[in-house]
């Protein structure tokens, strides 16, 4: 049995949006400490890796490791039915062939007198985040505020079932790597650079020197260059540009893939680029304290 409830269901919506243009089918691997996804695009040029730690969920139960094969387009269609404020619970049986997705509207949506249920829920051993637990909490809050009566929220609740599939996914063993360059910058700024550079050409060079990070493109229309300098003391954390460099690195990449990666921009204010000479770049979007989505992209190399 696998069951996980994410209060901020929007994260799941955005995650699937951020990978569905790159991979069509993938496995959600569930263990007792995280859910993860690793999948390559069809051409094996890029890879997406997602990790959501169990601690980031308000209820998480995974009795034994499970691989849930899903079609990303279909899951995206179902997740579009969830509101941005909805909590999302994922459920799967150990030997089932479907993934149940429960969407619950925000608590204040509907309020009704439903006393018996709430009293029954008091003192129960329901798991945290379950419907009964929520009822107990809300009951408690109202009782504290008003001193009398019991009010319980009836959730705005939708249940969808997604058919699962058997997927033989090719898993890459990616070793822990110390990168020569780590750049942290606002995710929105990175998105804008990628979008603008695509107007001029297909191949982006990213060059990191002590001067800063230079993004450059050459095409038939002309050339474009953007220099980003370290700005570690910006007022807001998310506006900071931080560059850690052991040695200068210059690599070139297909803009088409970098553009797919920027679909994850809404997941967080910051993007982290990791680079070393002649190895794939890692483009990481941290997701609060919950986890991350990382993209790996093989470089283009002069022969």
């Amino acid at each position: 049995m696998f069951e996980a409830r994410l209060t901020s269901g929007k994260i799941l919506k955005q995650l699937i949006e951020a990978l569905k243009d790159l991979v069509q089918e993938a496995n959600i691997d569930c263990s007792d400490d995280e859910i993860s996804i690793q999948a390559m695009d069809n051409s094996h040029v890029s890879l997406v890796a997602v990790s959501l730690r169990s601690g980031g969920f308000d209820h998480f139960r995974c009795d034994r490791p499970l691989s849930l094969g899903f079609n990303a387009t279909n899951m995206g269609k179902i997740l579009k039915c969830a509101g941005n404020e909805d909590a999302i619970t994922l459920k799967a049986e150990d030997d089932g062939d479907s993934l149940s997705m429960v969407f619950e509207g925000p608590n204040q949506d509907r309020i009704a007198d439903f006393g018996e249920f709430a009293r029954g829920a008091r003192g129960s051993d329901s798991p945290p985040g379950s419907r009964r637990e929520k009822c107990w909490k809300i009951d408690f809050n109202f009782a504290t505020m008003r001193g009398v009566g019991v009010l319980v929220v009836i959730f705005d609740r939708k249940i969808y079932e997604l058919k699962l599939m058997d997927i033989d996914s090719e898993q890459l063993g990616i070793p822990d790597t110390d990168y020569k360059v780590t750049i942290q910058m606002p995710s929105g700024e990175f998105q804008r650079i990628i979008r603008d550079m695509q107007v001029l050409g297909d191949t982006l060079s990213i060059s990191c020197t002590k001067e800063g990070v230079k993004f450059g493109v050459q095409g038939d229309l002309g050339t474009g260059n953007v220099l980003i300098r370290q700005n570690a003391h910006a007022e807001k954390d998310e506006d900071r540009v931080m560059i850690e460099m052991e040695e200068p690195v210059e690599l070139t990449f297909a803009l088409r893939y970098l553009n797919f990666f920027t679909k994850a921009t809404n997941l967080g204010p910051t993007v982290i680029l990791n680079m070393s000479p002649d190895v794939p770049i890692v483009v990481e979007y941290p997701i609060g304290e919950t986890g991350h989505i990382k993209y790996y992209l093989a470089p283009k190399i002069d022969e």
């Binding site: 040029v45 890459l172 063993g173 093989a298 283009k300």
Partner: peptide
């Protein structure tokens, strides 16, 4: 033009 490599050049399939 530089050549586009795949990730299989850099990482092993498990």
């Amino acid at each position: 033009d530089p050549r586009q490599y795949t990730l299989l050049k850099f990482y092993e399939l498990n």
